[in-house]
C-alpha cells in the first residue's frame, strides 16, 4: 500500500463531504433533517468536516411525531446546543390540530404517515429547496433505486420512473419553483459502514443504542417498548428484557433487539454476525406490504 491509498471509509466520507458542499453551493435554503438516530448523527459529523470552521449553511430540522424516545430528544437538544447550530422543531401534534387530521387507530397507532404532512408544511414554511437526509440504499429496495439528488414535486412526491440520470460525481440540483430536492449523502453506506465510522470517529450516540433493561411486550416476535403511545391488551405480558435499539424511529413503530452489547465493538460484532436486516428486525411499519416504502416515498415521505 502506498501512502496515497485510502481506506473505504475515507472514500465514503469524502464522497459525502463532496455532496454536502454541492448542496451548499447549489441551493439557497437547504435544511438537514435530523431525527436523533445514528444515520442523521453521522450526517452531522460529516457536515462538521465539510464546513468547519464555518457554520453549517443550513439549520437542523426535526419533525417531532410526539412519539419519540426521550433519550433521542435529549441528545438532539444537547447536540444543537454544543455545536451552536440552529435547530428547528415542528410537531406532528400541531399539524393534526391545525388540519383536523385523523390519528391512526389501533394498537401501534403510528404517526409515521402523518409525519409527511408536517414535513411538507415545514418545507413550505421555510421555503426549503433542499432537505438532506440520512437514508441509505441498503436499507430497502425502493431506496436502492433512488438518486443521491432526488427531485420531488410540489407535493413532495417521488416519481421512480422519471428520475434524472446521475452521472460521474456531477449533481444536478436545478428545480422549478415549488419543487425541492431530497439529498442523501450516505446513500452508498451500509449499516455496518455507519457503525464502523461511528467507532472510528468516536461519535457519541443516544443511550438507547446500547444495552439496557426495558419493559417490553412481545408482538409477533418483535419486542416493543411499553410506553404511553401503545395500547396494551389483556393478552399482553409485560416482560423485562435486556435490549438495545438497532434503529431509532418512533416508539410505536420501532422494535428493540435483545442484546447485551453495551459498547460499539460488541454492537459491530453483533451486526456482523446477524442474519436479519436492519429494517426487517426493527421496523413494524415496513411489513405492511411488499411496496410499503415505495408507496410512502411516492407520497412525499423521506
Amino acid at each position: 500500500m502506498s501512502k496515497y491509498s485510502l481506506d473505504y471509509l475515507d472514500h465514503l466520507e469524502s464522497e459525502a463531504i463532496h455532496i454536502f458542499r454541492e448542496v451548499a453551493g447549489q441551493f439557497e435554503r437547504p435544511a438537514l433533517l435530523f431525527s436523533g438516530g445514528k444515520d442523521s448523527i453521522t450526517l452531522v459529523q460529516l457536515a462538521l468536516k465539510a464546513f468547519r470552521p464555518g457554520k453549517f449553511p443550513f439549520p437542523l430540522v426535526h419533525i417531532d411525531t410526539g412519539h419519540n424516545f426521550p433519550e433521542a430528544l435529549k441528545y438532539r437538544d444537547e447536540l444543537a446546543e454544543r455545536l451552536g447550530e440552529k435547530l428547528i422543531v415542528r410537531n406532528v401534534e400541531d399539524t393534526i390540530k391545525a388540519k383536523n387530521l385523523t390519528e391512526p387507530k389501533g394498537k401501534f397507532a403510528s404517526r409515521n404517515a402523518l409525519q409527511t404532512f408536517t414535513l411538507l408544511d415545514t418545507i413550505e414554511e421555510f421555503k426549503f429547496d433542499a432537505c438532506i437526509g440520512g437514508a441509505r440504499r441498503d436499507e430497502e429496495k425502493a431506496r436502492a433505486k433512488e438518486r443521491i439528488f432526488s427531485v420531488r414535486d410540489e407535493f413532495g412526491q417521488w416519481d421512480p420512473k422519471l428520475q434524472r440520470p446521475e452521472l460521474w460525481n456531477t449533481y444536478n440540483g436545478r428545480i422549478n419553483k415549488g419543487e425541492n430536492v431530497r439529498v442523501f449523502p450516505i446513500s452508498n453506506w451500509t449499516e455496518l459502514d455507519v457503525w464502523n465510522y461511528i467507532r472510528r470517529e468516536k461519535i457519541e450516540l443516544p443511550s438507547i443504542y446500547f444495552s439496557h433493561e426495558r419493559d417490553v411486550i412481545d408482538h409477533e416476535g418483535q419486542l416493543v417498548a411499553v410506553s404511553d403511545f401503545i395500547k396494551l391488551d389483556a393478552t399482553d405480558t409485560v416482560l423485562k428484557k435486556t435490549v438495545r435499539y438497532r434503529t431509532v424511529g418512533d416508539m410505536t413503530c420501532t422494535a428493540a433487539v435483545e442484546s447485551k452489547a453495551d459498547n460499539i465493538d460488541d454492537i459491530i460484532s453483533e451486526i456482523t454476525a446477524t442474519k436479519t436486516s436492519e429494517r426487517g428486525e426493527t421496523r413494524i411499519d415496513d411489513k405492511v406490504s411488499e411496496a410499503a416504502m415505495e408507496d410512502r416515498k411516492k407520497n412525499g415521505y423521506f
Binding site: A144, K145, K161, S187, N188, E290, E294
Partner: peptide
C-alpha cells in the same frame, strides 16, 4: 426494487447493491 418491475418482471432503473 419497484412494484412495476416485479409486476412486469423487468428492471426499470439502475439499482445499487
Amino acid at each position: 426494487g419497484l412494484r412495476a418491475e416485479r409486476e412486469q418482471g423487468i428492471t426499470i432503473d439502475v439499482a445499487y447493491k
